[in-house]
Amino acid sequence: MLTASAILTDGLVYAAYLFIVAVGLTLIFGVMKILNVTHGSFYAFGAYGAATAVGIYTNGDWPAALGFLFMLGFAMAIGLVMGIILERGLLRLVYGKDEVVIVLVTYATFLILEDVIGLVWGTASYAAYQPMIAAGNIEIGDLVLSNYDIVLVVLAAVVAALAYWSLKFTRYGRLLTTVIYDRETAAAFGINVTLVYTVTFLIGAALGALGGAVMAPKISVTLGIGVEVIVLAFAVVAIGGMGSIEGALVGALIVGICRAAAVHLVPQIELFVIYGVMALVLVARPYGLFVRAQPRKI
């Protein structure tokens, strides 16, 4: 019984974190058809930014809640700055090239940014556990939960709800849906596709950095964290269907629960299970759970 509830809570927490990271990736893919490897860098920069922010506010003796918000805001600001530099400075030049070539461009950028991290923050690891400690624990029956994890789940739910609401009910969201559906028609109707691209990329980048920021207190912030995260995020997005927000949510839940189950029951297959599920889903539904294949016409 305890194992079951532990699997469920661990899985949910892990899913929350995966969703926050993956939603930006899937958004960018849905709108721009770019599989953005640089998302791993956004994550890493977010985590490092958060560590720096935690350093600032613990030295300044701020209240914990304010410190937490400052940490998120600081990281997202870094994401926004990186996003605008990348999109305006580089990606703009390669729009219209093969999807695969654009993947390579983002991969190259990812490699460059890996070393930029080292140059800015050095090679030492950072610990930013203070927010996690400050939040404390809560006991429910036999289960001990970290309040920080609960905040993480709530935050993921808020991001999901916000994404859903803004796509369905705001003007910008409807613009996005039009562009996702048919780029040429959207342009023909006078929608500023260039602007939509820039805004989308910025939102995606900020979400990637947010993912890194919320994880920073739970991990050791060290070189190479983006490398691992990007393939995980790929798995989540591929399972759900690239470009689908619901897909990212369901994909995150599947991966989260499967991994938690593996960790508690058969720890040897922890990594195997994630990519195994991904391969299985892709075999059954090549375009993921929430995206349909489009028939080719002659």
Binding site: V103, A238, P267, I269, L271, F272, A279, L282
Partner: peptide, 26 residues
């Protein structure tokens, strides 16, 4: 052979990561 473009890239990525996951834990 049924996949193209990034789907081919992603699926081959997943398959190699499966092997990695197995080896790391064996």
């Amino acid at each position: 052979a049924r996949y193209r473009e990034i789907f081919f890239a992603m699926l081959s990525l997943a398959l190699s990561m499966i092997l990695y996951g197995v080896l790391v834990k064996t």
